[in-house]
Simulated scan of single mutants.
Amino acid sequence: MKLTPLLCAILPGIAMGSMATAQPAEAPSPAPAPVTLRLTAPEAHQGAASDGRFIYAIDNDRIGKYRIATGERVAQWQGERRLFPHMNSCTVVGRELVCAASNYPVVPQTSAVEFFDTGTLRHLRTVSLGFGPGSLTALDRHDNAWWAVFANYAGKGGEPGRDTRYTLLVRMDDQFRQVAAWTFPPEILARFTPYSCSGASWSADGRLYVTGHDRPEMYELAVPEAGSTLELRRTVSIATPGQAIDWDPVQPDRLWSIDRARNAIIASRIAP
Rank of each mutant, 00 (worst) to 15 (best):
M1P: 07
T4L: 08
P5N: 13
G13D: 00
A15T: 10
M19R: 08
T21F: 12
A22L: 14
Q23G: 05
P24I: 05
P28G: 01
V35E: 01
V35L: 02
T36D: 04
R38A: 03
L39M: 09
T40L: 08
T40Y: 10
A41V: 07
P42W: 03
G47N: 01
A48T: 02
D51W: 04
A57N: 03
D59W: 04
D61F: 11
I63L: 07
I63F: 05
G64L: 04
G64W: 00
I68N: 12
G71T: 04
A75I: 11
Q76G: 12
Q76L: 15
Q78F: 05
E80T: 07
E80C: 05
R81W: 12
R81E: 09
H86F: 03
N88E: 09
N88V: 10
N88D: 14
S89E: 02
T91R: 05
V92T: 09
E96M: 11
E96L: 07
L97Y: 02
V98W: 01
A100K: 01
S102A: 06
S111A: 07
V113R: 02
V113F: 00
F116E: 03
F116G: 03
D117M: 03
T118C: 07
G119T: 07
T120S: 15
T120A: 09
R122K: 11
R122V: 06
R122F: 03
H123I: 05
T126H: 04
F131Q: 13
G132N: 07
A138G: 11
D143L: 07
W147R: 00
F150L: 14
F150Y: 15
N152A: 12
Y153P: 12
Y153C: 13
G155A: 14
K156P: 03
R165Y: 02
R171C: 13
D173I: 10
Q178K: 12
V179D: 08
V179K: 15
I188V: 15
F192E: 11
Y195W: 10
G199W: 04
A200V: 04
A200R: 08
S201C: 04
W202G: 02
A204P: 06
D205Q: 07
G206F: 09
R207L: 09
Y209Q: 11
V210M: 07
T211H: 08
T211A: 14
G212R: 10
D214N: 15
R215F: 10
M218W: 12
M218Q: 10
Y219Q: 12
Y219A: 14
Y219D: 14
L221A: 09
L221I: 15
A226P: 06
A226D: 13
S228I: 08
T229K: 11
L230V: 13
E231I: 15
E231A: 15
L232D: 08
R233H: 06
R233Y: 01
R234A: 01
T235I: 15
V236S: 12
S237A: 15
T240K: 05
P241Q: 00
D246R: 05
P249G: 03
P249N: 02
V250N: 11
V250T: 04
P252V: 08
P252W: 06
S257L: 05
S257P: 06
D259V: 01
A261Y: 01
N263C: 10
I265P: 03
I265M: 14
A267R: 00
A267G: 01
R269G: 02
A271E: 02
